[in-house]
């Protein structure tokens, strides 16, 4: 079987408390169809609440789907969870697992035993992984004395300790510094390249991480997969277009009329990021059909009293793909407004 993960019409609903005693149904996953090939690093990109973690929980047998089907490594997650568990592991960014009173090495040894790994192999693997992520000097430190980053490194090691066929990484570099994140990304790539049957399903907020690491990506929003392809193919979707990053100085009250920019000829989508009230520098991300639309955009801004303080034309990024598909930025600042055609 060439697919490591298959989901068919996967749906998950939650009953959530509302005001008073009313309960409402919240759809976390809405008919998700996904195929992840063996040997690839597959990314799920989406904002908070998009359904990424819910999907990982279902695939890792922690949550039952409301309907639909999920198969991991050829085993159905609902009817054969034990077989799934033999071949998977999971790391969640920001988790605080482990026993605070035990040392890092003891904690990692404990989790290796849950997979029946012989002691000698487990300890060798622990030492090697600690060396890779730079945690060797903390091997005999009690876990409750670790910093957040060190704890995250420990959890990262825990995920690899069982040498799983399929690894779920839910925001693996959350809370880590730039250098450690780079080391970890490199290790993930090498780990997958090392053996063709290893697969990683990764969720992330970080566009650069997804771009650099993932062979294929799915963009998720409100429980639905909006697009699924390689990062370069996704970027090509907006590739014929130009992405303009414009910094303007304008009164807060002048922002609303600027949304009308999207109605201009040649303008496909506009997102305005603002830090809030008064005269401020705002950032406009504008996707235009081609360079020919640029003068018209600048003229429109000038007519509305906005002073252009900065201008940059960029190559499309995954952020732009997200903007194109969802209609807003994934990493937007406060006060983001969006306007689009249609």
């Amino acid at each position: 079987m060439s697919q490591a993960i298959i989901t068919e019409q996967l749906r998950r609903e939650f009953r959530v408390d509302k005001e008073g005693k009313r309960r409402e149904t919240f759809v976390a996953l809405d008919g998700v169809n996904l195929e992840v090939n063996r040997g690839e690093i597959f990314g799920l990109l989406g904002p908070n609440g998009a359904g990424k973690t819910t999907l990982i929980k279902i695939l890792s047998t922690l949550l039952s789907p409301t309907s639909g089907r999920a198969v991991v490594g050829g085993f159905d997650v609902t009817s054969d969870p034990y077989s799934v568990r033999r071949i998977i592991n999971m790391v969640s960014g920001g988790e605080h697992s482990g026993y605070g009173i035990l040392t890092v090495r003891e904690n990692l040894w404990l989790f290796s035993q849950l997979y029946g790994i012989p002691n000698k192999i487990a300890l060798e693997r622990i030492d090697r992984l600690m060396d890779i992520v730079g945690l060797s000097d903390r091997a005999r430190t009690k876990v409750h004395k670790l910093s957040t980053g060190q704890r995250q490194k420990m959890n990262f090691i825990r995920g690899f300790i069982s040498d799983p066929e399929i690894l779920f990484l839910d925001e693996p570099t959350l809370g880590l510094d730039v250098e450690t994140s780079r080391v970890i990304r490199r290790y993930i790539r090498e780990w997958v390249d090392d053996r063709p049957d290893r697969t990683v399903l990764l969720t992330t907020h970080y566009m650069a991480e997804a771009d650099q690491l993932c062979d294929r990506l799915a963009i998720v929003n409100q429980g639905k997969i909006l697009a699924c392809d390689t990062p370069s193919a996704l970027k090509r979707r907006v590739g014929q277009d130009s992405v303009l990053e414009i910094e303007i100085s304008a009164q807060a009250g002048q922002l609303q009329p600027l949304a009308e920019l999207s109605a201009q000829r040649g303008v496909r989508r506009v997102a305005i990021s603002s830090n809030g009230g008064g005269t401020l520098t705002h950032r406009l991300s504008v996707i235009v059909d081609g360079d020919g639309a640029i003068p018209e955009v600048l003229q429109f801004l000038a007519q509305r009293g906005a002073i252009v303080t900065g201008f940059k034309k960029t190559e499309p990024t995954l952020e732009d793909v997200f903007l194109e598909l969802v209609g807003r930025r994934l990493t937007g600042e406060n006060g983001s407004q969006v306007a689009s055609k249609g």
């Binding site: 922690l62 568990r85 033999r86 999971m90 969640s92 605080h96 697992s97 482990g98 849950l114 029946g116």
Partner: peptide, 12 residues
């Protein structure tokens, strides 16, 4: 302590 889910994804 986040450990329960780790026990429950293990093949035990």
């Amino acid at each position: 302590g986040w450990n329960l889910e780790l026990y429950f994804i293990a093949p035990i």
